[in-house]
Design a protein around this nucleic acid. Structure first.
Length: 637
RNA sequence: GCUGGCGUAGCUCAGUGGUAGAGCACCUCCUUGGUAAGGAGGAGGUCGUGGGUUCAAGCCCCAUCGCCAGCUCCA
């Protein structure tokens, strides 16, 4: 008997029976074996010391790969649990302890008198290090289901017993042991504890057993683990950076917006924040003109009859603000689509009018439960760069292509955020004709391919009313945000009885495309603040230029420079405070102004300014009119 | 919604039962200074809100509002 292994490069190799993944890695190279953390066997991730089956495709998983980190973090969770058991005794009951993005957690129930807080983490972390230093092997044992239950009962682990009984229906279950700690676990794990080279415990929170508030709340310890100390340091640095960029902090420091407890979940845009908002709208409106959109302005309050027609009363009512007007029930609108239906239907429509692209920036209100409100990212009142495209089935492809082009223009050219798309297709329960779905999904795929947009397919994840494409944008520090969306809707036109008269003289039902490029303006501005760390490009910067007279002698000259800039349409401020130049520069720097113009005696005498750019620093002296030309070029007008 | 933490001056925060504090910002005066903080003085708070305990409450208790974090990417 022998083992036949197919390597990722297609090479076929033969090994004696009982060969492990690690031995294959060693046969390939010593270096590879050293960084091998697990192996992928016929698509499944296995421990390196498991014996391979007679025939398999094998890939060595290195410790710094995404899969490798997943394994490391899973093992780190065990190490942490073992450390907790050593420190707090066998009375600690363990729940789930999975790896998650960037780290891992473990839920545990401590004896009643024990309360673990973040102050205890260094101590637990110290114990983890001892376990890592001891380099215990992770040993797997596949045992009959009943034996596993008995073992967990002996260990006093009721959550594990429950898991075995409720979730594990195989005849066998696997137990993993590292040193003195044994745990029910599917694996896989690193070969031995020292392979978790960098570990840090992060925080303590509460979490319900199985996420259900009716269940007991367990203590959740969060940690992070990496393939090297360097990678851990880099991760911690990234967290710091994200904290510095937090839009709630910068929004206050830069006086962009504020929140008040009298209107929770709603943003006050201060003058500088309102500039961001209005510049974005002006930009979108220019694009709308180029791209054949028509903007409308619609009411806020609608009779419940509208929501009954659209289906929102049935499906979305919990999120709607309902109030009584003239003894009837009304609601603040949570979405624009129904009002756009009314616009579409106010008269007969011809195929000649299609595609009809209706855009709307009106405010929307959704009654989100209190616990989920957060800064600008989760609010109750917001506006979207919302539009609905009414079109024929034949026009879907072209319209979607147009939206894809719009998305590309905005994110690649203007904001510099790379993105990925996800195509979600027909779910198990859907409404409408299957033929229309097939046709629409094909149109979406063709449009994506023609536009050259790479996408991941998510079969079955579409809404019941139509397939969709969602976009995930990456910001300057690598975080993903779901911003743009393109959703087809076959249902809404039917509910409203929307029609158009075709070239054939027959009545047809149009398709609706819901689409947003930025999404919620509030959320988008929050994302932009973090993406740019408050250092907005010139066209968006609330204050574009600060004029700095050095002494009172230059005040009149500085005022004239300031007047020229504002006259040319730029947002200029002048600092007339009784302070030294270096103080004024510091103040303007903290404001993150793109340009400072120093006006001293020399500049006043020659009609020039000394330019200091936000990033580049002192750039020397230019004439005022030259500087204004430069601003115009930079902004592209 | 549930659990936990927090709420003191415009901002960041100190103050654990006995006369409300600091730094920055603000105002006034002095200083007229060439690329990230010149100096002096001053003003500013019913300590989130409502109850309660106490001779006495920013501090202890209860309620309430708001903010922050978390609430199974299944052993």
């Amino acid at each position: 008997m022998s083992v036949h292994v197919i390597l990722p490069d297609g090479a076929r190799r033969e090994f004696p029976d009982g060969t492990t993944g690690l031995q294959v890695a060693e046969a390939i190279s010593k270096g590879l074996a050293k960084v091998a953390i697990a192996v992928r066997v016929n698509g499944e991730i296995w421990d390196v010391r498991r014996c391979l089956p007679a025939e398999c495709a094998l890939e060595v998983i290195k410790e710094d790969s995404p899969d490798g980190l997943f394994v490391i973090r899973h093992s780190a969770a065990h190490i942490m649990a073992g450390a907790v058991r050593r420190l707090y005794g066998s009375g600690v009951k363990f729940g789930f302890g999975p790896p998650v993005e960037d780290g891992f957690y473990y839920d545990m129930e401590f004896p009643d008198h024990v309360k673990v807080t973040e102050d205890d983490l260094p101590n637990i972390e110290e114990e983890c290090r001892k376990i890592i230093a001891a380099d215990y092997p992770f040993e797997r044992a596949d045992v009959p289901h009943g034996d596993a239950v008995r073992r967990m009962e002996e260990l006093g682990q009721p959550y594990k017993v429950e898991t075995l009984r409720q979730d594990i229906h195989d005849p066998t279950a696997s137990l993993y042991t590292d040193g003195d700690f044994i745990d029910l676990c599917e694996g896989p794990h690193v070969p031995s504890t020292a392979r978790v080279r960098a570990l840090r415990l992060m925080k303590v929170t509460g979490a319900y057993w199985r996420g259900d508030p009716h269940n007991r709340m367990l203590t959740r310890l969060y940690g992070t683990a990496w393939a090297s100390q360097k990678a851990l340091d880099e991760y911690l640095r990234r967290l710091e950076e994200a904290k510095k960029r937090d839009h709630r902090k910068l929004g206050q420091e830069l006086e962009l917006f504020l929140f008040h407890e009298y209107s929770p979940g709603a943003v006050f845009f201060l003058p500088k924040g309102a500039i961001l908002y209005n510049e974005l709208l002006a930009f979108l409106r220019r694009e709308y003109r180029r791209r054949g959109y028509q903007e409308v302005i619609t009411p806020q309050l609608f009779n419940r009859k509208l929501w009954e027609t659209s289906g929102h009363w049935e499906h979305f009512r919990e999120n709607m603000f309902v109030l009584s007007v003239d003894e009837e029930e009304y609601s603040l609108k949570p979405m624009n689509c129904p009002s756009h239906m009314l616009i579409y239907q106010h008269r007969r429509r011809s195929y000649r009018e299609l595609p009809m692209r209706i855009a709307d920036f009106c405010a929307l209100h959704r009654n989100e439960i209190r616990g989920v409100l957060a800064g600008m990212t989760r609010v109750r009142k917001f506006e979207q760069d919302d539009a609905h495209i009414f079109c024929t089935a034949e026009q879907i492809e072209g319209e979607v292509f147009g939206c894809l082009d719009f998305v590309r223009h905005v994110y690649e050219r203007v904001f510099g955020m790379p993105y990925e798309a996800k195509l979600s297709t027909r779910p198990p329960t859907f409404m409408g004709e299957a033929a229309l779905w097939d046709r629409a999904e094909a149109a979406l795929k063709t449009a994506l391919e023609k536009a050259g947009v790479a996408y991941a397919a998510a079969p079955g994840e579409g809404a019941f009313y139509g397939p969709k494409v969602d976009f995930f944008m990456k910001d300057a520090i690598g975080r993903d945000w779901q911003l743009s969306t393109i959703q087809l809707d076959f249902q809404l036109p039917r509910r409203f009885g929307a029609e158009y008269e075709g070239a054939d003289g027959q009545r047809h039902v149009p398709v609706i495309i819901h689409r947003a490029i930025l999404g919620s303006l509030e959320r988008f501005i929050g994302v932009l603040v973090e993406h740019y760390a408050g250092e907005f490009p010139l066209w968006l910067a609330p204050v574009q230029v600060v004029v700095l007279p050095i002494t009172e002698q230059e005040e009149a000259y500085a005022r004239s420079v300031h007047a020229e800039l504002t006259g040319a349409g730029f947002r200029s401020e002048i600092d007339l405070s009784n302070q030294r130049l270096s103080y004024k520069i510091r103040a303007a720097t903290l404001q993150k102004a793109p340009y400072m113009l120093v006006c001293g005696a020399r500049e006043a005498a020659s009609g020039t300014v000394a330019v200091r750019a936000r990033k580049e620093g002192d750039e020397g002296v230019v004439r005022v009119d030259e500087f204004i030309d430069r601003l115009r070029r930079e902004i592209g007008v």
